[in-house]
Each structure stands twice: as C-alpha cells, then as structure tokens.
Nucleic acid binder design. Structure first.
Lengths: 350, 350
DNA sequence: TTGTATGCGTTATCAC
DNA sequence: GTGATAACGCATACAA
C-alpha cells in the first residue's frame, strides 16, 4: 500500500548511525550520548518515521494493548467506565481493544483468541460471569496475572477486583429510607445470576433484618437492571393489596422507569412511594422528581482498574494474587424519597 | 512468559508436513488435499496452537483491526453504535480499537500513531470534527480510502459517510408540531461547531419558513446536546414573555432535562409546552411523559459503517470516493407533544 | 498438491 | 557508547 513508509534502516542511514542506535534512541534514550541522540531525533523528524507496531510486538513479545470486556456496550452505565479506562491506558501507551461479551458472536472463542494469539497483554473485564473455559484459557496462557475485574467479579476466581462497596450501598439505601420513617420496604433486584444483584439483595435483606423490618416475600421483585423490568415492577407494586411505602432498586434504570410507570398508574412518587436507585447515572439528577440514589464513582472505578492492570503489566514481580479494592459509594438524596406521612414536597430531607 | 506457546513449526512437526502447508491450512484450506488438511487440523488441536498475531501482521502488512473514534464515550448515544460496529467487525475477523476523541490526552499524536504505525487497517469516526492535521496524516498514510464517517461527518473531507437523514428528521419534527396546531415553535440547538446541530437547525428554520411560521430570535436557544443545556433552556423558556407553544430539541438529552426542569418551573409538558427530541434513546419511552422524538436507527448506522469499511478493506479496487448513505429516521409520537388547545390528556395529574 | 527458502521491521545479544 | 547480527513467527514466491 504505502511503499514509502520509512523504516528504521532509513533513519539510521540519514542519521549516519546503525539501526541498533536508532532503536535505542526510541526505547532507552538515556543510554545514548546527547549528540547522537539528537542526530537520530532529527533524522526521525526528517524522514517522518514511525515504528512498526507489528514488528516491535513480534520482537518484544508484547502487544501494547489491553482487552476490555463489556457486558452490553449499549448500557450507559459502562461507557463512562470505558472512557476512563481508555484515558489511563492511553496515557501509558496502551491501546484499548473492546469487546461486547454479550454479543451473538461465538464469544468464547473470540476472546480466547485475543488472549492466546498475543493481541493483548492483559484483560479488564466488566463482566463477572467468566466461564470456566475462559478461566482455563487464561491459565494456559499464563495470563491470570494480567486480568483485573472491574465493577463485577467472580467469587470463583480469586483475581484482583476493583468494585464499589455494594453492600454498603444497600445499607445506606435502607438506612436512608428507615430514617425517613419507612418500615415497609421493597426491593427490585438485578438478574439472579449477577454478582452485583446478589450482593445488593443480600445486604438489603440483612440490613432490614438488623433493623427489625419484616419484608413480605412479594416485595422482593425480580428484575434485571433494565428499564423494562422497572416498568414491570411498577405494575406489580401498584397491584399489591399491601404495598410497601418505599422501594430500593438495584439500578437507576429500574428506578427511573419504575417511577414513570408509577405515575401512569396513579401512584405518586415520592408521596405514595419513595424510590431509591443505584449507580447515579448522569440523568438521575435531571428527571422529575430527581432520583435519590447510591452513587458509584464510575470514573474512579475505571481508572483504578486500569492502573491496577498497568502495575501488573509493568512489574516482573508476581503481584498479590487477588487484591480487592472497594471504591466508596455515597447516598445522593434527591426528590424521589421523602419522609413517610410528610405533606407536600421536594428537598424534604427530614 | 509462556515459553510453551506452540508455533507453526511445532504443528508442522506433529502433522508431518511443512510449515508452509500448515500456514495454508490456516489461510487457504481449499488448496490442500482433504487428507493433509485434516492431518493439520488434528495437529493444531493436539498442540493447542494459535496463530501469533504480531507475526502474521508483520508478514501480511495488515493489522486485522479497526480504530473507532468516539467523541465522548460517556455519552449513551454512542455506545449502541459502538456495539453494533463491534458486532459486524468481530464477525469479519477484525478487532475494534476504541479511542475517545475528546480525551485530555494529546490525541492528535495518538490517533496519528494508530494510523501510521500499522496498528489498524482503517478508521470509523463518529466525530465529525476532523482536524486538518489528521486529514494530512490519513493522506500521507494512504489511508484516506480506509476511513468511514458514521453519524457525524465533515463537509471539508469528501469521505464516505453513513448518517441519518437529519434534515428529514427536523422536517418531520416541525411538521408534527405544525399538524398539532402549533405555530410558535422554538428550537434548542446543539453545539454550533457540530455538523449535526448545524443541519438540524438549518432544516428547522427552512421548514418553518416554508410553512410560513415566524420564529422569534430568542426561540432559538443555543445548547450543546447535554442534559445541562436542556435544563438551562427550560429556564430561558419559562422566563419568556412570549413563549413558544412547542420546542424542537436537537437531542433527547436536551429534551428530557428540559421537560423535567419545566415541571419544576410550573410549565406543564405537554399541556403548556410540547417537546420533541432527537435520537430516540432507549429511556425516551420510559419517562413520564414519554418523549416524542425522531428515531435514529443507531444499530443500523453502526452496522452500515462497519460494512462499508469492510468492503473497502477487502477490495483492491478503489471504491467510490465519498459514498453517502442516508439512514432513515422516523417520528415516534409519544406523550410529550399534544394538539394545541386540546384539553388535558393522559397522566395529567394536576 | 506440497516443500524450500526468504523477508516482513524491529529489538536483544553480543562484541567492540 | 555504538555497531553487527541473529532471532521473533509467519506467509508467500518459487520449485518440485
């Protein structure tokens, strides 16, 4: 295609040095005398030379790239994380390869290939459902030490994991509602096979028990994090003879659509029902009523995961096998929750 | 790291053939006799061999990867597109490299490197603001024929472009409002340097003129596609002595937050103000009132862009330089717009 | 149909 | 501090 792309040899010729010297100027400039170093730089500028990535990768047996596995790229929750991962990795000279783990494609094979054929040096997965096949792949490729979980994780694999303090988040949610006087609290869950959903639900139940709240079985409504499941949950709640006065949703998407559907059904939020979400999507602050929620610092999650991986990639020493980093969460009190029995409205934080 | 990774030579040895034959089994299986082909496959299975990507790339002078440039990865509008791009490219054996073009990093240099150092074979950019420097880079790398614009584009570069019919969208919006009896229509724009914002605004004004509507200057409210700008626009509208009865927003995010803020300000949507958005984000159907909007088929946009690029990458023949594909848009009428003067409506809980 | 031999562009190992 | 030179692992032109 481009026959004219200069190679290291051309630069060496122009600079009047050997190819080895040019290579050094690129990778360990401090080992050259200043004069030759400048000569080489000048030659590089003059020729417009760029190192050929494939050749370098072949020789160094590294890829300079990281694979990020995202469950459902279309979900707005993940894109911010992806962005901050990208930022940190780019700043450290790594490329970001992205793959949607819920894609129709025969993903097992595809992902394995990335790992085994040297396309990437490491993996950050936002998907906690790692197949055992993939675990085997990682092990066989000696890549277990180059994997970092972000947000989600798998209890079966003891790998480093950057995650929000989900249990704390659930407790904060329950405590918030409790302090507002709520004693009848429901919960719309995430998918039962999702680790986040499991942890949040368990912590919800534990906290309720600690506070002496009795939760009717039908107040635990199965969902899947999606907008659709939030709307469904609203229908169920509206139809209950004994409604909860508040509901803790496992995601903001659930909460947002639940609130909207409730309005349609004549259930007013927060007057008839207080609603609290999880995530703090950007839009949570821009709806009416604005959404009380548990904030996850997605930017930090992505950044920490990227930094953790880079540390591992750069160090020869085996790192602590399964480092778990809990990122803090915060309760963001907005308008979708209010004190029980309280008349009227907004920023009513009793 | 992994000293044991089998190479093509090992497979050849096990299969009792030459390395060339193994290579052929991988790239042009039809040129081998069935017996040897099977022998090779078996050996590959037995050894657990995987092609070394770097070596292949070096030899073939291809990367098997595509760079996708996304302006603000955090914006939910783009992630669905990214997902469908990923799907098509993966199905065709290409990896997806993603880069946030609004990243703090010295992006010009970084992106240029991707293109010049052979990391990628082509580029799909969702960012229409292509710097002239980058245009030069592409030209010098002979990569101009491997670039496809998706969603946004640049009029200065005649490159293939997959985009929604934005002008039609704006017309549909105006016509919808007009048919509902609205004669005083406002518009919240996107960023003035954005091509989509420009086209939508121009088409809005043209259509209004065609319909004989006079638009007060202050009804054209500058925005930037963001939630924040929608809320600001609501403030401005509420404060107007002569309000429009309807407003066409350049994005769903603008529309959604505009509606919410309007409620806070005592302006009821759609009773006092009809609002129509642009994009049809998933959440548009899950808010209350649900959002009337112009639907863009994001999945199709991504898929078409990916397919267009693949066609170009696979063909030696020079393709039509600047093919423009207009993806259809649709008006999705929901609850945020209503006939003027019409008394009440759905969930209008006053 | 299959094997032999060369080169893709770089970095690492030696010497000097 | 710098220069030869041998890999890195694969695909392909050419022979057979």
């Amino acid at each position: 295609m481009q026959k004219l792309q200069p190679k290291i040899k051309d630069v060496a010729h122009v600079a009047g040095v050997s190819t080895a010297t040019v290579s050094r100027a690129l990778t360990q400039p401090e080992r050259l005398s200043e004069s030759t170093r400048e000569k080489v730089y000048e030659a590089i500028r003059a020729t417009g030379y760029r190192v050929n990535k494939a050749a370098r990768n072949l020789r160094t047996r590294r890829a300079g790239a990281v694979l990020v596995l995202v469950p459902n790229l279309g979900n707005p929750f993940f894109s911010v994380i992806l962005s901050s991962i990208n930022e940190v990795l780019a700043a450290n000279g790594y490329s970001v390869l992205v793959f949607d783990s819920q894609q129709p494609s025969a993903r097992g094979q595809v992902v394995s290939d990335y790992l085994l054929n040297g396309s990437v040096d490491g993996l950050i997965t936002l998907d906690g459902n790692m197949s055992s096949a993939m675990g085997e792949t990682l092990k066989s490729a000696n890549m277990l030490r180059n994997v970092v979980f972000c947000c989600e994780w798998s209890d079966e694999m003891s790998l480093p994991s950057i995650r929000s303090d989900n249990a704390l988040g659930a407790r904060l949610a329950v405590d918030h509602l409790f302090s507002l006087g709520h004693r009848r609290i429901g919960h719309v869950t995430g998918p039962s096979d999702n680790i986040l959903a499991q942890v949040r639900k368990a912590a919800f139940e534990t906290r309720c028990a600690e506070l002496g709240l009795s939760i009717a079985p039908d107040w635990i409504i199965p969902g899947d994090f999606s907008l659709a499941s939030g709307a469904l949950a609203a229908e169920q709640i509206a139809a209950m003879p004994e409604r909860p006065t508040a509901v803790f949703c496992a995601s903001d998407e659930i909460a947002l659509s639940l609130i909207s559907r409730c309005k349609h059904l004549g259930v007013s939020v927060p007057r008839d029902l207080s609603v609290i979400g999880f995530d703090d999507l950007e839009i949570a602050g821009f709806v009416e009523p604005s959404l009380t929620t548990i904030r996850q610092d997605r930017t930090r999650l992505g950044r920490l995961a990227a930094e953790e991986l880079i540390t591992r990639l750069n160090s020869v020493q085996p790192q602590e096998a399964s480092r778990i980093v809990l990122a803090p969460v915060d309760l963001i009190a907005r308008e979708s929750t209010m004190a029980i029995g309280a008349e009227s409205f907004p920023p009513n934080m009793a």
